[in-house]
Design a protein around this nucleic acid. Sequence first.
DNA 1: CGAATTTCTATTGTATACAAGTTGTATTTT
DNA 2: AAAATACAACTTGTATACAATAGAAATTCG
Lengths: 235, 235
Amino acid sequence: MTDTVKNRKAALYDHLKTSILTLALDPGSDLDEADLSTSFGLSRTPLREVFRELAGEGYLELHAGRGARVSGMSHTTVRDFFLAAPMIYGAILRLAALNASPRQIEELRTAQDRFRTALRTGDAAARALANNRFHEITGEMAGNVYLLPSFYRLLIDHARIGMTFYRPQNNEMAGNLTAASDQHDAIIAAIEARDADAAARLADEHWKLSRDQIEMFVMPAPLDMPLGTFPKNSA
Amino acid sequence: MTDTVKNRKAALYDHLKTSILTLALDPGSDLDEADLSTSFGLSRTPLREVFRELAGEGYLELHAGRGARVSGMSHTTVRDFFLAAPMIYGAILRLAALNASPRQIEELRTAQDRFRTALRTGDAAARALANNRFHEITGEMAGNVYLLPSFYRLLIDHARIGMTFYRPQNNEMAGNLTAASDQHDAIIAAIEARDADAAARLADEHWKLSRDQIEMFVMPAPLDMPLGTFPKNSA
DNA sequence: CGAATTTCTATTGTATACAAGTTGTATTTT
DNA sequence: AAAATACAACTTGTATACAATAGAAATTCG
C-alpha cells in the first residue's frame, strides 16, 4: 500500500479500534491528539474526524473541552450488557440465517479459520479480535440498519468484558474455548442451511457459554475462595 | 442566548435534525458545506464535525469524496423497521418503567403536554417532533447504552415514515392521533407506577397503532381501491 | 497556615489557506 | 455522429496558524 493520508487515517482507526477492544487502552483513558498526530503522520483535523467517527460507533466518548477518551466501563455496564445481549444476538443471528449471501458465508468461514488459529497459537488479544470479527460478519449478514448500531456497540464491550474476565485458570475455562469454536461451526452450518430457528437457538447457547465464562471469573475456584464473600449467581 | 460559536453549532445541529425528521430535507439529498457554512456563520471545520456527529447518530451518511447526504430510505427500510421496532420499543419501555427518575417523569409529562398542544394547533411536522421528543425521553429513562443506539435510530425513521404515510384522509386516521395521545398518558402512568409489564404491553399497543396507520396509507380506503391490487396485510 | 484569586501553561476548538480529487463539459479524434 | 480524452470549475479533504478555554501552579491576602 502506498503511504497516503487516507491509509494513515485507516491505520489510526484500526489501531484505536483494536487497542480499545483488547484493552491495550484502558476504558476511560484520555487520548492525546498531539501524540497520535505525530506518530501517525496526520494533522489534527483528520485525526479529530477519526475520533468523532469512533465516538459515533461507541468506542470513544467526546467531552467538550476535554477531548476524547476511551468509552468507560462502569458498574452498570455488565448488568446492562446482560440485559441487552441475549435479545440482540438472537435477532441478529436469526436474520443472518435468512439473509446471508454465499460470499458472506465464505467470509465467515475465513474468520472462523482465523479464530481457530488464534485459539492454538495466539494470545488472548488475538482470540478476542478474531472472535469479534466473526460476530461482526454475522451482523453484516443480518444487514438490518436498525439493529446493527446496538449489535456493534455490544460487540465492543463483549470483547472488553471477555478480555477482563477470561483467564484460563482451570480446565473448564480452557474447554469453553473449544466449545465456543464448535458453536461457531454450528452457527455457520445453520446460516448456510437458512435455518433461522437453529441460528437463534445457537445464539442463545453461545451467549450462555459466554455468560458462564464471565460468572466463572466471579467465582473461579468454588472451593478455594480467598475472601469468601462472593456468592455465585446461578440464576 | 449570546451568539457564540458553540450556540451556532447547536443551532445547525438542531436545524439539520429537525429538517431531517420532518422530511424538510429529503432522504438522500446532498448537503452543501459552503451554503450551510455561510448561513450559520460557522467555518467548515466545526460544520463538518456536526456532520460526523449526525452521521454517527444515523441522520446523515458520509460518502468519501462526496460529502454528506441525508440518510436514505430504501425499499428495505420499512421491512427492516417493522422487524426491529416492536422488540426494541418493548425493551426500552420496560426498562424505562424500572429506571425512570422523578425528574425524568416530569420531563415526559411536559413533552406529552407539548404533543397534545401540537395535536390541536400544530401541523404534521410539529406533531412528529413532539412525538419524537416524547419517545426520546423514554429512551433516556431506560438508560441502557447498548439498546439506545438502535432505539434512537428507529426513532429517526419512525418520524420520517410517519411524515410520509400520515395524511388525515379519514376520520379513523384522525382518531388514531387521540388514541396515540391516550396511550402516551397510559405510558406515563405505567412508568410512574414502575409497572414494567404494563409498560411493555403499552409499547406493543402503541406500536400496533403506528403500524396500522402506516398500513392504512397503503390501503387508505378499503372499499374504494382505484387499482384493486393491493391486498391488506392483516397478520 | 490556609483559602481564594490570579496568572500561566497546556490542550482543545476554530478559521482560513491550500491541496487533492471529482464531475461535468467541450473539444478532438475516429 | 459517437466516443473518448483532456481540461476547467467546483467540491471535498488536509494542514497550519490562531483563539479560547480548562487545569495547574503560584502568589497574595485573610
